[in-house]
């Protein structure tokens, strides 16, 4: 986990240096704000990973000598099929088209999105280990 953490913190450090340099060279606002956003993108997950990677025992996939037997067991739940992503996609499609072809399309759109949200949740509860 340490390399993952360093990668993300490295993203933050690079954009911090670039952002500071850019601001004091150009005093241009929009670019600086976007660079600050990129700093946060690396810093927020990266600092958490860094903090956590100091405390955890390295996972089998972090160690050069990790064996497959160490990774045995449940990795997670991977549902093999689900209709709800499709329903939610169609709902959002309908909502998006509503902005062009008329607000009435929001009705089926929201109906599908809510149905999919409920469907997702019920499916996850039934499926167990997510």
């Amino acid at each position: 986990m340490k390399i993952e953490a360093r990668l993300l913190v490295g993203v933050a450090l690079f954009f911090l240096v670039t952002g500071v340099g850019y601001w004091f060279w150009s005093y241009e606002q929009s670019g600086t704000v976007m660079l600050i956003g990129a700093v946060l993108l690396g810093l927020v997950p990266g600092s958490y990973y860094l903090w956590w990677s100091q405390r955890m025992t390295p996972r089998p996939e972090d160690r050069d000598d990790g064996t497959l037997a160490e990774g045995a067991g449940v990795i997670g739940a991977f549902p093999s099929s689900s209709i709800w992503p499709f329903v939610m996609g169609m709902g959002l499609f309908s909502c998006a088209l509503a902005t062009v072809f008329g607000t009435w399309l929001l009705a089926p759109g929201f109906a599908a999105v809510f149905a999919a949200a409920i469907g997702y949740t019920v499916e996850s509860r039934r499926g167990g280990t997510i």
Binding site: P79, P85, G89
Partner: peptide, 17 residues
């Protein structure tokens, strides 16, 4: 996996749009 499927539907509907 389901977020992955959802991404595909957004991509397909975006293309159609």
């Amino acid at each position: 996996p389901r977020l992955n499927a959802f991404s595909y539907w957004l991509y397909l509907t975006g293309s159609i749009t």
